[in-house]
């Protein structure tokens, strides 16, 4: 196995553990729950084939689902996020989008990463919160919880960048 694969497997295990052991225990008025684990999908190389993204998104989501007893809900939302990722990357006109580069702050830049991660996390969270509650009644309330949780997740994702890619 090459170094890259081992790095990604480690990342996978770390994001899952951080999610189920720490993030799920953050209590902020009982409404906000950051979903940090999407970091794994965000950090896949820019040229990752789309079907690989989808399959890994499913694997990641279903593992989280098993820990929190919600089979299908996280899987569905992270697959949705993996599906949207290439569109967000293409729309952002980043150079080297066909190269094996990790889309991180250190590789591409802070403001690009903030937009990229922000949009994808928001898409994932809104999708997740509506699938979880399975109704559009209380639309504003659910939307607000999704957006608030997205902000928290984004903060954790950005902080993690400085821990993972230390110089």
């Amino acid at each position: 196995m090459n170094k890259g694969a081992i790095w990604y497997i480690t990342l996978f295990v770390v994001v899952v553990l951080v999610q189920v052991l720490f993030m799920n225990n953050i209590q902020f008025s009982g409404l906000v729950n950051p979903y940090f684990y999407v970091l794994f999908i965000l950090l896949m190389p820019l040229n990752t084939p789309r079907y690989v993204l989808l399959l890994l998104g499913f694997l990641l989501g279903i593992v989280i689902d098993i820990f929190v007893n919600t089979p299908g809900i996280h899987a569905s939302s992270s697959v949705f996020m993996a599906f949207m990722r290439p569109f967000v990357i293409n729309a952002s006109n980043v150079d080297d989008s066909d190269k094996m580069i990790i889309p991180s702050i250190s590789n591409i830049g802070f403001s690009w990463f903030l937009k990229y991660a922000g949009i994808l996390i928001m898409l994932h969270h809104v999708f997740l919160f509506f699938v979880e509650i399975f109704t559009f009644s209380g639309f504003i309330n659910t939307l607000m919880r999704a957006v608030l949780s997205s902000l928290f997740s984004l903060v954790f994702v950005v902080i993690s960048q400085f821990l993972i890619f230390r110089k």
Partner: peptide, 16 residues
Amino acid sequence: VLFLFLFIQLVCITLI
């Protein structure tokens, strides 16, 4: 890719 996406979503919905 689209078909794979729809297929996986179908699996997820079944699970849910």
